[in-house]
Design a protein around this nucleic acid. Structure first.
Lengths: 125, 125
DNA sequence: CATATGATTCGATTATTCTAGAAATATGGA
DNA sequence: TCCATATTTCTAGAATAATCGAATCATATG
């Protein structure tokens, strides 16, 4: 990861609604949640939520798939892993003593959602 | 860690100068760097740097100690660990399958600087 | 095609953050 | 004490971000 990607990810998470939004998606795993479901749980107007979601998407932290009229969002754990690694880079004065960071991105690799027991859908855009 | 602490830490890191500042402190380890040294390396006016440093300190990411006329700053790795853990909390839909996150805070516990400073990381001038 | 539903874009407004010069504070030494 | 060095605080203008209603777009279905 390079600095501008890290900054985009940090800026995206550094806002109450967006952090709550992201943290709602974390336990939802590769199944994710629909946009309307998120707006309802967070009690935020749709236009406001949509703007926040746009920031998270632009930062690469959230991916989505259209399912009929609704859009299902999920956290991109690989991207979060990259951010966590970036934040600890060159730690230990380069002695290489830090254990590698790991999250469930290993357990739910990209594509897991498509293979999961969910209706077949196509990518947006 | 609770949400407001996480937000403060994320806001603190979500700014180019402050992220660069923090990343300068990471390889410096428990020895840290003086404020003036940081300002010089970042080519930022002292008042601007001081303001940014204040944000990082308020977020608990940077600790400092006065040494005569100068103030020596160092990254608080424990705080960063807590932030990283917060960002992956409830991952894996609560299956507890995520490996625990770990950084060198275990290797350099609080107080390490005073007792046993490591050899200084080479700095560019 | 007409209509309903889910989501985004467009605006204007309000709020927050960044920046850096000048002044102030803290420490050490002659 | 007086002076030099290191850092912070104060200030205010400039830049950026958040908010949300109304309009618009995309899709499904009768």
């Amino acid at each position: 990861m390079e600095i501008n990607e890290a900054l985009a990810a940090l800026r995206a998470l550094a806002q109450p609604t967006r952090l709550a939004l992201y943290r709602l998606l974390v336990p939802a795993g590769p199944t994710g949640m629909a946009v309307g479901e998120l707006a309802e749980q967070l009690s935020v107007p749709h236009s406001t939520l949509s703007a926040h979601l746009g920031v998270l998407r632009a930062a690469g932290l959230v991916l989505d798939t259209r399912e009929g009229r609704s859009i299902r969002c999920r956290a991109d754990f690989g991207r979060m892993d990259a951010l966590l690694a970036y934040l600890s880079e060159n730690c230990c004065a380069g002695h290489g003593a830090c254990a590698p960071l790991r999250t469930c991105s290993t357990l739910f690799p990209p594509g897991a959602a498509a293979r999961a027991p969910l209706p077949r859908v196509r990518q947006r855009r």
